[in-house]
Amino acid sequence: MFASLGLIVIIVGAIVGQSRYARILAKQRNAESRYMPEYEASYVPRGLRRTDTFVSHLSHRGGPDIDNANDAAPHVRAAYFRAVALDVPAPPAPGVLPGVPTGSDAVGHVPPDHAGA
């Protein structure tokens, strides 16, 4: 029994030693440092629209987190990325339906070609 305990301690020692080496390399090389515009750049949010739609319930084995979660790495682009330069203002909404933004309220409106995922 004590020999098994000794073996475990030796394995733990090897892991801790390797981890110490990796920490030294990371500190010296500083490879993960980057400019973090999400915290350090100046911006003013003018509007936020959100939808949260329940899709399904899942019973599953494996980890408790979603596969390929990327919310902790905002600097890594998603699988689909599109940037569109709109050189002209969006056309004003007709304004005949209740609730449709018009005039200056329509500035925050995203044109149809941009709205699809």
Binding site: S42, V44, L48, R50, S56, L58, P64
Partner: peptide, 21 residues
């Protein structure tokens, strides 16, 4: 272990005025 999870489709749309990036 068996995990129980609710799945949501999420959308966020933000208007930003970015200054001196």
């Amino acid at each position: 272990d068996l995990y129980e999870t609710d799945i949501y489709a999420v959308m966020r749309e933000a208007d930003l005025e970015v200054d001196d990036l």
